[in-house]
């Protein structure tokens, strides 16, 4: 195999913000393909747990069985332990002990005159996996302050819902309920180059006008040097307003803005199934494993070709 001479780079990650369900980091010194691969994996290939099979015993609610099953499936489950499980579709070996199902029970009946909300808090956890539960799960007395859980259905007097829900491991590619993120996106860092020589031909007033033509605060006029500076390149929306303004001022080429092809600002919004940094790490892990698989199969293909005497 030939290897093309490419400048060797070490991708850098600098984390800007980490919250339980949000994180923002900058990935630099790599290509859009890598950034996109990371995004795609986070979106659809990081496994999580979600309810996949529902056995309904009693349902006298206003919503029908399929509808309730669908709603149950969409509840994010805290999936820290997802790696201990085997997905329903990837049991390739006959591992008798493979963990597959987490069984939740639900049995709610409305006996009062008021409407009763059935939420994810009404799911009874699997005693073997007490740490696998819906997000924002609480079983204590539910006052207004407490987390209410995800609303499933409302009951009136006499209505009864009894079911068994089985959660399994899966990936977002198969169904959106297994996506660990609400959204993940990366943004190209704009590369803004001001032609200072041309800029200096503008009067101060014109400079201010030009700066204000941008709907978002990207530039500022340094009061000391009277030079136009970039304050927040990220705020630029590729709206083209400043370029149009420059043209209107008769100074085409005043500024040159291109997206940088090696720097990406990632924003990950989690569903609560996993902490966001875990998602990122898991995604990288999945990617690595994919590369491993690829490498191995390439090697075996090479070996096969050698055998054939090619």
């Amino acid at each position: 195999m030939s290897s093309r001479a490419a400048p060797k780079r070490t991708p850098q990650v600098s984390v800007r913000k980490i919250e339980p369900d949000f994180c923002e980091f900058v990935l630099s010194d790599t290509d859009p393909s890598v950034a996109n691969a990371l995004r795609r994996v986070m979106l659809s290939e990081v496994p999580t747990l979600a309810i996949d099979l529902v056995e309904i015993e009693v349902n006298t609610t206003v919503l029908n069985d399929e509808f309730i099953a669908h709603r149950l499936g969409l509840i994010p489950l805290v999936s820290q332990r997802v790696w201990d499980f085997t997905g329903a579709y990837d049991t390739n070996d006959d591992d008798e002990n493979a963990l597959m199902d987490i069984v939740f029970q639900m049995d709610v009946k409305c006996t009062g005159d008021d409407t009763l909300d059935v939420t994810s808090n009404d799911l009874q956890l699997d005693p073997s996996f007490p740490d696998i539960h819906p997000v924002a799960y609480s079983t204590g007395p539910q006052d207004a302050q407490a987390e209410k859980g995800v609303l499933l259905v409302k009951l009136r007097k006499g209505q009864h819902l009894k079911l068994k829900a089985i959660a399994r491991k899966g990936i977002g590619k198969d169904h959106a309920k297994w996506q660990p993120v609400a959204t993940v996106a990366f943004q190209y860092m704009p590369d803004i180059r001001i032609n200072h020589a041309l800029m200096d031909t503008l009067s101060e007033e014109q400079k201010l006008q030009w700066i204000q033509s941008s709907p978002n605060p990207v530039f500022r006029l340094n009061p000391v040097t009277a030079q136009v500076e970039v304050v927040d390149a990220e705020a630029y929306r590729y709206d083209g307003e400043v370029i149009a303004k420059a043209k209107a001022l008769g100074k085409e080429g005043l500024v040159n803005i291109t997206p940088r092809q090696d720097m990406f600002i990632f924003r990950v919004e989690g569903t609560g199934a996993m902490a966001t940094q875990q998602i990122v790490v898991a995604a990288i892990d999945v990617l690595l494993r994919k590369l491993d698989t690829l490498q191995q199969s390439l090697a075996s293909a090479d070996a096969a070709m050698d055998m054939d005497g090619l």
Binding site: S44, G172, K173, Q179, E269
Partner: peptide, 14 residues
């Protein structure tokens, strides 16, 4: 597929 949909880089909306 969701991953193949175009997205808005800033908001992440697909």
């Amino acid at each position: 597929p969701d991953a193949d949909m175009p997205f808005c880089p800033r908001t992440g909306i697909r």
